[in-house]
């Protein structure tokens, strides 16, 4: 008895969803593209910010007996400043950051919601990436740095050629996860009028006077985006772990690997 209205309403939900898909395709696709673009650029720029801030935080945390007093003070100041950045942007909602930064800088920068959205998500992601990179650097064995110093590399060279490549590799799952999170969380940027997927769903909802249809559709779209991304990241991760087997086929047999050279 109770099943009848439920089935009926489900049928009508499907109808509503189909209507949204057929009538508002272009809006939805545009929204999905904007979502992916802002998430991708935000993750890449965020990673660059994170590499710089994370490396600074790692260096300013390390104590060296050779350090002069001025160096120690500089390190403390740098650590404090980068901590402020990391804590503030991780400790407040991105939606609040977006509203505040967009409107407070609108006068001086005269930026579009599109550009503002990319900036805000990048700065926000940078704060998370900084900590990911810092722990990635910490996960690299100290001996790697000593090996680099022992052949005369400077701190910068050791960081750039030896430590960071390994840190990024170790942190790759977390970095990829930030991308997936950004695909979903970029929806809060609708508050400054950035036309991503959620924003489009809201517009459609306004024209069709129905909540369920549009949000079911974008829900599915979000899921497809994140699911696909997760799989792609998984494949990349697997590839990264197997790049070592680039040795010639003749040398790849277990026998030859174990064989001593003498």
């Amino acid at each position: 008895m109770n099943l009848i209205p439920l089935v009926l309403s489900n049928v009508s939900l499907m109808d509503k969803a189909m209507k949204v898909v057929t009538q508002y395709q272009s809006l939805l696709i545009k929204g999905a593209i904007n979502t992916v673009i802002v998430a991708l650029i935000g993750t890449i720029v965020g990673l660059v910010i994170g590499l710089v801030i994370g490396a600074i935080r790692f260096v300013s945390l390390s104590h060296d007996r050779k350090d002069s007093k001025i160096t120690v003070i500089c390190k403390k100041i740098l650590y404090f400043l980068t901590s402020c950045y990391v804590e503030i942007f991780r400790g407040t909602p991105m939606m609040v950051q977006a509203m505040f930064l967009y409107w407070s800088l609108k006068q001086s920068l005269n930026w579009t919601p599109y550009f503002a959205a990319i900036c805000i998500i990048s700065i926000n992601t940078g704060a998370y990436m900084a900590e990911i990179v810092r722990s990635g650097i910490q996960s690299v064995d100290k001996g790697q740095n000593e090996g680099a110093r022992s052949i005369g590399m400077t701190d910068m060279q050791a960081m750039f050629y030896v430590i960071l490549p390994q840190a990024i590799k170790n942190a790759f799952p977390s970095i990829g996860n930030e991308f997936v999170v950004n695909i979903k969380d970029s929806c809060v940027l609708n508050c400054i009028g950035f036309a991503e997927l959620f924003f489009q769903a809201k517009s459609i909802q306004g024209s069709v006077f129905d909540y369920t249809g549009p949000f079911l559709v974008v829900g599915i779209m979000y899921f497809v985006l994140t699911f696909t991304t997760t799989r792609i990241l998984g494949i990349i991760e697997e590839k990264m772990n197997h790049t070592h087997s680039s040795i010639p086929a003749s040398d790849t047999t277990a026998n030859s690997i174990q064989r001593g050279g003498f």
Binding site: G143, E146, G147, S150, G152, V162
Partner: peptide, 19 residues
Amino acid sequence: NTYRTKVGMVFQSFNLFNN
């Protein structure tokens, strides 16, 4: 760093660059 290139070091734990 110039001095270190003249004085090579071999470690107990190898410390080869894994990347």
